[in-house]
Design a protein around this nucleic acid. Structure first.
Length: 549
RNA sequence: GGCCCGUUGGUGAAGUGGUUGAACACACAUGCCUUUCACGCAUGCAUUCAUGGGUUCAAAUCCCGUACGGGUCACCA
């Protein structure tokens, strides 16, 4: 029996050979230095913050160099398959404005010439290459059952050997005759295809990682599984074939992959492929009970990229935050270019951190606050409305009905040198402006009175203020002067310095009186500029509100 | 346990043998400004770069050991 015949029996349904596929996916026509990168998530129906992080890196790296960034779905594990997993991923990434050049982007249909971009549709391709390996005696069928595998592991534990299927432990199957193997196949025994490893654990491979530098690891000598019983490849094999055929130049992925690097190097060599450049990104971590750990999708809601969307944290803010983690000099650049386009920033491998950063929500919110403060009132209004339509429909209705009041309110102390920073997420807008809407301002509200709490005094202050002093036509300075005059009349200090020197001479000060007006009209002691609020409310509404006291 | 990687303040970090008396940002604290809050401004916050040793005129920066943290050892990615 020839090896070809043997391979045909093992993999009878393969349509093409490897040469066919190599010819089908020619080298990309790109300028020198252009990077081809990719994001390769599994469709668990959920985009991890770490995937977004990688996506941003991959996408920037490719586009700043005039290259290509594609999306490939790694759905080789059918047990983990989730319904609508692929759409979920594409959808989430779309919302984060990650722009891929190729992938299953058009409702799951491929865009680009190097597809299919979904691994489950590439079965024939993988098998063509496995077949080639079998013919070259670099791979063999393995009939090892789970129990047999466990028995080996137990033995290895007992004698404190390394654990795995390698060298002497694999000899029986490695040396099995083709005839014997065919007999087992014909008998219907299930089998996988394993690599016949040529590696030597005592020798080392040195891999140059674009981020971590030289990594030296013992060679792989495990006869790892290439093709599972169902004929679908393992991650390792799919990675080698896909990234070669799709002509990836830079593999960006999480650094949990470093330990399988020797496998990948051996696979590329066995297949006669050129090893791509690897860039292993440090994983984002989280601290809990004083311990660091990988941010986990089961325990941490913030691991899911949808979390930020639900909270109303702008996509852009998340991107800015991830960029600060990605490149240590980004923050400085952004500070100097607050309105700059991120695309103008050049991402550099050697500015990427080798250690895993702790996820810092406070920092994210701070970035978000600053970002929101630079938007126009119209933009904040529109974004808040878009958010509310999905997550708070009552508020959305109100915003649509009271568009003008909302925008006027959001515009107070905005679009200036030092804009206000009242909220970090769209979900916080409501609590900041609700009182501006007439229909929200009814009886039985909770007022946040500060120093002056006596009802008769409060009413007295307001009555006199409205009757004698308040004039909507006043400018800011005049407006405040009037409040001071009011203070003088009622025995409150209009001058803070005088008040501080002799507080006992006054009933209170101008800040206390202003607060009374503020709280009476809004219930809150924390609001933007009072004069502007009053102008938006209008005299009639102001009087109505005073009447409610 | 084997194998990898890492360790600069509460957090992200700058730093690649000598103007580093260790940038910058977040957080925190205090004060100022002030119609509250926020903004802004000012000041403070690592006598020291996990630790022990070595190389050197000189080390956070180079070398070795130790400790600690993380990752990984699947027919999961």
């Amino acid at each position: 029996m020839t090896r070809e015949e043997f391979a045909n029996i093992l993999l009878p349904d393969v349509l093409h050979d490897r040469a066919y596929y190599e010819a089908k996916y020619p080298k990309r026509n790109l300028e020198a230095g252009a990077m081809v990168t990719r994001l390769a998530p599994s469709p668990t129906g959920f985009v991890h913050i770490g995937s977004l992080y990688q996506a941003i890196a991959a996408q920037k790296l490719a586009h700043q160099s005039g290259g290509v960034c594609f999306l490939r779905i790694e759905d080789t594990d059918q047990k983990r398959e989730v319904e609508n997993g692929i759409e979920g991923i594409i959808n989430s990434l779309k919302q984060y404005e990650v722009s891929f050049d190729e992938g299953p982007l058009d409702n799951g249909m491929d865009v680009g010439n190097y597809g299919p971009y979904i691994q489950s549709k590439r079965k024939d391709i993988y098998q063509a290459f496995v077949k080639d390996l079998i013919i070259k005696d670099l791979a063999y069928p393995s009939f090892l059952t789970e129990e047999e595998k466990e028995a080996i592991t137990e033995k290895q534990k007992k004698i404190k050997s390394r654990i795995g299927y390698f060298g002497p432990w694999a000899m029986d199957e490695r040396n099995m005759s083709m005839e014997m193997a065919v007999q087992k196949v014909k008998a219907g025994l299930p089998y996988v295809i394993r690599l016949k490893s040529k590696g030597n654990f005592l020798k080392r491979v040195v891999i140059k990682d674009a981020i971590k530098g030289d990594i030296s690891i013992p060679e792989n000598d495990m006869d790892i599984v290439l093709l599972k019983q169902d004929g679908i490849p393992t991650y390792h094999f799919a990675h080698a074939v896909d990234d070669t055929l799709m002509h990836t130049t830079h593999v960006t992925r999480g650094d949990e992959w470093i330990s399988s690097l020797p496998i990948h190097v051996e696979l590329f060599e066995a297949l006669g492929f050129k090893v791509p450049t690897y860039a292993h990104l440090a994983t984002i971590q989280k601290e809990e009970d004083g311990k660091k750990r990988k941010i986990s999708k089961r325990k941490d809601p913030e691991a899911n990229v949808m979390y930020y969307l639900e909270k109303g944290i702008p996509v852009k803010a998340v991107e800015l935050y991830l960029m600060t983690l990605l490149n240590s000099n980004f923050e400085e650049w952004y500070l100097a270019n607050p309105k700059g386009n991120i695309q103008d920033f050049t991402l550099l491998f050697d500015k990427m951190s080798v250690g895993g950063a702790l996820f810092d929500m406070e920092k994210l919110l701070n970035i978000s606050k600053n970002y929101l403060s630079l938007l126009t009132a119209e933009e904040v209004y529109q974004n808040t409305l878009d958010w509310a339509k999905k997550y708070d429909s009552d508020f959305a209705n109100l915003l649509e009905k009271e568009r003008e009041v909302a925008i006027l309110t959001l515009n107070i102390e905005r679009e200036s040198e030092k804009p206000r920073k009242d909220f970090a997420m769209y979900s916080e807008v409501k609590e900041n402006i609700w009182y501006m809407f007439k229909e929200n301002f009814t009886e039985n509200l909770k007022y946040d009175w500060q120093k002056i709490t006596d009802k008769t005094e409060i009413k007295h202050i307001l009555d006199i203020y409205l009757a004698k002093y308040y004039d909507p036509k006043d400018d800011n300075e005049e407006w405040f002067n009037k409040v001071k005059l009011l203070c003088d009349e009622l025995g409150y200090a209009s001058n803070m310095k005088e008040y501080k020197q002799n507080p006992e001479k006054f009933k209170g000060n101008v800040a206390d009186v202003s607060t009374v007006i503020r709280v009476a009209l809004t219930t809150s002691s924390r609001t933007p500029n009072l004069k502007d609020i009053m102008a938006i409310l209008g005299m009639q509404e102001i009087q109505r509100r005073v009447g409610l006291l």
